[in-house]
Amino acid sequence: MALELHRSDWRVLLASRMECEFFLVRYVPDTVKNEFVNIGVLLREAGRAESTRVRFTRDWSRVRCLDPDADTAMLEAMETEIAERLKLGEHDFKPVLQVMEDTLSNSLQLTEPRGCLAENLSAEMEQLMRMYVETVRERVIRPRTGRAAIAATMREEFERANVWDLMRKRISASQYTRVGDPLKIDCGYRPNGIIRMFQAISLEGDLEAAKVLAFSSSGLREGVQRLEGASLELTAIVEPLREMEDETAAVERYRFGVETMERESIRVLTVSDLERVAQTARRELNL
């Protein structure tokens, strides 16, 4: 009798779950060697293409181990590109695959679909990410430093405020300045008659990024006004000035970077201001 109840409970449990299918997104830097790292998951309810969700990893250490020169910013932008195409109704994966191939020269690949049973898509996505993408063994976590740490914190705060998906990412300066300008601004949004753009800058590292942003700012403002009919508020997000004993030169470099950008009317904030910045974005985007 106990066995029958057990079987009955099992059938009820299965009946309560939805049939889904998922695809793993793999990063393959060298298609000849065919070495790869799973970096994301595409998940959807079976027979409902419009339910498709995408998630990429937030920890790129395994990718960098395989390919030290990997453009992780481009990979993050690809996640956004795929999500936006899915929102626009492109539920056929062929156009999505074409974007991957054109942008990253076949470095991103999708596996064949696999079936699964899920209580709900959100919980299943978390489970699949843990199983196939994130590292499950204990390992030494290397703290992110420099610009990468600032950019990651900026993204996390905007995601926490639920505005990241509404923002433009990797904004090409060349559309506002001139063809060939390689500068890309991390993210931005337009709440009304003003466009706000944000760039992660590490003043403890190379000050060239601060000088480049300062040099480009006037051209960016003129281009935004000309093409968008809006004013530009450009914000640099930097690390806080740490207590530095006997490091006068480092402090002077930090202050030089701040003053260089502020002279060009670039607003300079630290990562500790990001929660407030993200909440402002949330209000301005009417969330």
Rank of each mutant, 00 (worst) to 15 (best):
1 M>R: 10
8 S>N: 13
9 D>Q: 14
9 D>N: 11
15 A>Y: 00
17 R>K: 15
18 M>I: 12
24 L>I: 11
25 V>F: 06
25 V>D: 03
27 Y>F: 15
32 V>C: 00
33 K>Y: 01
34 N>K: 10
34 N>I: 01
34 N>L: 01
38 N>R: 05
38 N>Q: 04
44 R>Q: 15
48 R>E: 07
50 E>C: 07
53 R>C: 07
53 R>Q: 06
58 R>Y: 12
59 D>V: 05
61 S>W: 04
62 R>Y: 10
64 R>M: 14
64 R>T: 14
68 P>C: 07
71 D>S: 08
72 T>N: 09
72 T>D: 08
74 M>K: 14
74 M>N: 10
76 E>P: 04
82 I>L: 11
85 R>A: 13
90 E>M: 10
92 D>H: 06
95 P>Y: 11
99 V>H: 09
101 E>W: 10
102 D>A: 14
102 D>I: 08
103 T>W: 12
103 T>V: 05
104 L>W: 13
111 T>N: 08
112 E>H: 10
118 A>W: 01
119 E>N: 09
122 S>K: 07
124 E>N: 12
125 M>I: 06
130 R>K: 14
131 M>I: 13
133 V>F: 09
136 V>E: 11
136 V>I: 15
140 V>P: 08
144 R>Y: 10
147 R>H: 03
149 A>M: 02
149 A>T: 00
162 N>D: 11
163 V>A: 02
166 L>C: 06
177 T>G: 09
177 T>W: 01
181 D>T: 10
187 C>E: 04
187 C>R: 08
187 C>G: 04
189 Y>F: 15
197 M>S: 02
200 A>M: 06
202 S>W: 00
202 S>V: 07
203 L>P: 00
207 L>A: 02
210 A>Q: 00
211 K>T: 08
212 V>G: 00
213 L>P: 02
214 A>V: 08
217 S>W: 05
220 L>I: 09
223 G>E: 13
228 E>D: 15
230 A>S: 13
232 L>Y: 06
234 L>A: 02
234 L>G: 02
235 T>L: 02
236 A>E: 00
237 I>K: 01
239 E>Y: 07
242 R>N: 10
243 E>T: 13
245 E>N: 03
245 E>T: 11
250 A>E: 12
251 V>Y: 02
252 E>H: 07
254 Y>W: 12
256 F>G: 04
256 F>E: 12
261 M>T: 02
262 E>D: 05
265 S>G: 02
268 V>T: 09
269 L>T: 01
277 V>Y: 00
278 A>G: 03
280 T>L: 11
282 R>F: 02
285 L>D: 06
285 L>T: 09
